[in-house]
Design a binder for these strands. Sequence first.
DNA 1: TGCTTATATAGGACTTGTCATATATGACCT
DNA 2: AGGTCATATATGACAAGTCCTATATAAGCA
Lengths: 172, 172
Amino acid sequence: MSLRHAILGFLSLKPLSGYDLRKAMDASVQHFWPADQAQIYRTLARLVADGLVDVQDVDGDTRQRKLHIATAEGLAELDDWLRTIHPAEDSREPFLIKMFFGGRIGAADVRALLLARRGEAEAMRTTFQGIATSIPAGGDLNTTLRRATLLSGLRHVEAEILWIDETLEAVE
Amino acid sequence: MSLRHAILGFLSLKPLSGYDLRKAMDASVQHFWPADQAQIYRTLARLVADGLVDVQDVDGDTRQRKLHIATAEGLAELDDWLRTIHPAEDSREPFLIKMFFGGRIGAADVRALLLARRGEAEAMRTTFQGIATSIPAGGDLNTTLRRATLLSGLRHVEAEILWIDETLEAVE
DNA sequence: TGCTTATATAGGACTTGTCATATATGACCT
DNA sequence: AGGTCATATATGACAAGTCCTATATAAGCA
């Protein structure tokens, strides 16, 4: 249920419409929290119902957007969540299921799967590197942490590429 | 929808009851595909309805278990899936959302989150290392690939630990 | 003027997975 | 004989997310 808190996080920065929220998330946290448009609106509605977010219709504007503002309770809830130490959630890796039963399809086909994945990982590495170098190290805490979320993605694709090469060699 | 294929994979090795399946999955693929008991039984029922798995009641046995056997179509479906190159799925990392908005709670609390996560990652590294060393390298394709799924987990926790240390330093 | 695109919100149907609970029996122990 | 544990299967209620579709308006362009 982290979308709730991701949304509260964005609203803690400034009031946003559902539409803006979607764009903001796509532009920043998409690689570790891809958000579905329908889900954003539904979660927003839920947050409003729970009193963690206020809505304000914008009439003076050109568009009929609904500005969402985090309430004091919303911010308190966000900070509580941020400070809580949650155990790591388990991840699902369909690709590893394929590897686990790869014996059925033989080494050649397994190599093809690994190479395809390697290509994807390389592309992601390039993307992450490009964005990461655009954020200089040594900024304030916010910048440092936002940079860190990117580096996390980068470190994991790097590890993935290394693992693929290692596995490719083992399958040889 | 990979549980379907994970199940087909296990049934391709030998017929199993839902109960056995759960134990087999917990003992081998749990770290990349944790399976819920209810979900296993429901998916099994679905596979039977789809003609990919046959059921056989075991009467002679002490227990009233239902042996599940992959049909020819089931195995064909499994192999098709194994050979298909699927694009990597996006992962959700609640922890990174916390990092992204960590500026709200300050460096000290962020460090606490990172250290807690580091502890978990270290524990997982130890577990993975223990199991990985029990599987010697250089076996047949099946063994190599099963070892590879473990090494994948190991490489990723290693990367995670490195990233945590890097981030801890940046937050200093 | 008409076409397309971006803005903006929302509901329906569905899938996957989780959590709790129900049920029943055989095995083992005291 | 009674209690507990492992075996074995299954359902109900729910949460979270995906995909598709509907709706409406403003902006920009040809």
